[in-house]
Design a protein around this nucleic acid. Structure first.
Lengths: 109, 109
DNA sequence: CAGACTAGTTTGCAATATAGACTAGTATGT
DNA sequence: ACATACTAGTCTATATTGCAAACTAGTCTG
């Protein structure tokens, strides 16, 4: 390896960061979904402190990316939206996590 | 600690992520500056593969945040822009790095 | 049946990121 | 001498986001 690449060989990985996951609000959402397997809209709303509109649009973006399943059902006449990670979403999150770990591990900070 | 907080105690840290540094393009720029101490515009341009306009605006944002020093000088009649981390920038980057490490270390991904 | 609450979506706005056009000058080829 | 190409950026325009307030639709309660 060339001398000028020392300590920077991992930096190219930064370019390939998954932007869908990288956004803090979505990283937060995904972190919860990764842990609890399934959650409803209001649970996420309370945990994340996002506004409803904001949470809604982030979830739609995650759904569009194929990372999250949005299932709507009724529980005693009250609508409930259930969120869960898709297989893809779980994989993408794991990969993102690995990538970030690697980036910061190799950085001299 | 309450049971429902298991595995999620670190997630609040996500909310406080420094957005200036978090943006991949700037993370990349800062990573280089962190390693090499000082670099000129064209070096960063080549290393990062950003366009000139894009690099310029990111640098301005970093300068505005107080993270980067922009010094312009002439080298044999040719203008050269030298970039370096400020003390603050170095500290912020280090803190960001630590925070991210912690987040991903405690995440079950 | 009026008011308040649940559960979200739609809309509008402000900030960002990105690329392309533009400026200003230098070196090189003919 | 003049044009072409290169260095070194900045400025401007646009497209995409992230975010919050307003709105929809229906349910519960006094």
């Amino acid at each position: 390896m060339a001398a000028e690449e020392k300590g920077t060989k991992n930096l190219t990985a930064i370019t390939d960061i998954d932007r869908v996951i990288h956004e803090p609000a979505r990283l937060l959402i995904l972190s919860y979904l990764y842990v609890v397997e399934s959650a409803d809209f209001l649970f996420l709303l309370r945990q994340t402190n996002l506004t409803k509109g904001n949470l809604s649009s982030h979830l739609m973006k995650l759904e569009k990316a194929g990372y999250v399943n949005i299932k709507k059902k009724f529980v005693e006449k009250i609508p409930r939206t259930l969120l869960s990670l898709t297989k893809e979403g779980r994989k993408a999150f794991h990969e993102y996590s690995q990538r970030m770990k690697k980036i910061f591990k190799e950085l001299p900070g």
